[in-house]
């Protein structure tokens, strides 16, 4: 298990005079769950936005399975198998939960105008996508909410729905931006279980930004720590927990906050 799924090499991003990301480099190994940690403002979400194509980097390269992806628009990156979630879940509030999920489905010929004219919603693929969506709902234990407007869901349920929608998009690498933030503890455990299952059963690679250190240390195989736009350390959870720079810049403050 030494192959790199994702290679982030020296990316830079400035906002005005501030270097939000200042030459960050790290790798995500195929089949791993890699955690990205660091204090607020360390540049984690900016890194995510660059990887997923929502922001253009001022320098550096992003390589996914041997293919340069930097400079590609977001939809091309998602089609390449790199699917993300957002820190504040971007669910489609005025569509049903089921529709939210079905939107994520890949290879839908009915999304093309001409075929949509001919077939409407009656196609084999559409039935398959519906079944896939129902299966995901089942997995997330949200089946009873299928016809509800997504806007009526609670914050935690929205996080689950967004995770499910990302799964529908058949990711090879899943980018999760703070999946546990604002989620009730019981639901958080459920979410973590899902993430673990995904790797085990579907062989998915996962990159996760998370502030909940306990969670990060328990599910990640590898942790990358950032501070002030740079990667200051990377290693196994155990190595990171004892790394002095990480403790000084981040873990120390987290520990203090938990006292």
């Amino acid at each position: 298990m030494t192959e790199h799924a994702l290679l982030v090499d020296g990316i830079v991003r400035r906002f005005g005079g501030v270097r939000a990301v200042d030459g960050a480099s790290f790798t995500v190994q195929d089949g791993s769950i890699t955690g990205l940690i660091g204090p607020n403002g360390a540049g984690k979400t900016t890194v995510f936005n660059i990887i997923s194509g929502f922001l253009r980097a001022d320098g550096g390269a992003v390589t996914f399975r041997g293919r340069r992806l930097d400079g590609f628009p977001p939809h091309r990156i998602a089609q390449a198998g790199l699917v993300r979630t957002f820190q504040a879940p971007r669910i489609l509030t005025r569509m049903s939960v089921l529709e939210n999920l079905m939107l994520g489905g890949v290879k839908q010929p009915g999304e093309r105008f001409a075929l949509a004219c001919l077939l409407g919603s009656a196609s084999r693929r559409e039935r398959e996508v519906r079944e896939e969506a129902m299966a995901v709902l089942d997995l997330l234990r949200l089946t009873h909410l299928a016809p509800a407007y997504a806007g009526t869901l609670s914050g935690g349920q929205r996080k689950l729905l967004e995770l499910g929608r990302a799964l529908m998009a058949a990711p090879r690498l899943l980018l999760l931006d703070e999946p546990l933030a604002g989620v009730a503890p019981a639901l958080a455990d459920q979410l973590l279980d899902h993430v673990g299952t995904l790797r085990k059963h579907r062989g998915m690679t996962i990159l996760i930004i998370e502030h909940d250190m306990e969670a990060v240390m328990s599910i990640c195989d590898w942790v990358v720590a950032m501070d002030q736009g740079r990667v200051i350390a990377s290693g196994t959870p155990r190595q990171i927990q004892t790394n002095e720079r990480v403790i000084a810049s981040y873990l120390g403050t987290v520990a203090a906050a938990h006292v």
Binding site: H75, T93, M95, Q108, E111, A116, G120, V129
Partner: peptide, 28 residues
């Protein structure tokens, strides 16, 4: 008919939140 098709679903998603649609591989 179009509106109820997968095509219409993508359109609706774009109206609601185009970044979310793009993040799922839709060419907004």
């Amino acid at each position: 008919r179009l509106e109820r098709s997968p095509w219409g679903r993508v359109m609706k998603a774009i109206r609601e939140d185009e970044e979310a649609a793009a993040s799922l591989g839709k060419h907004v």
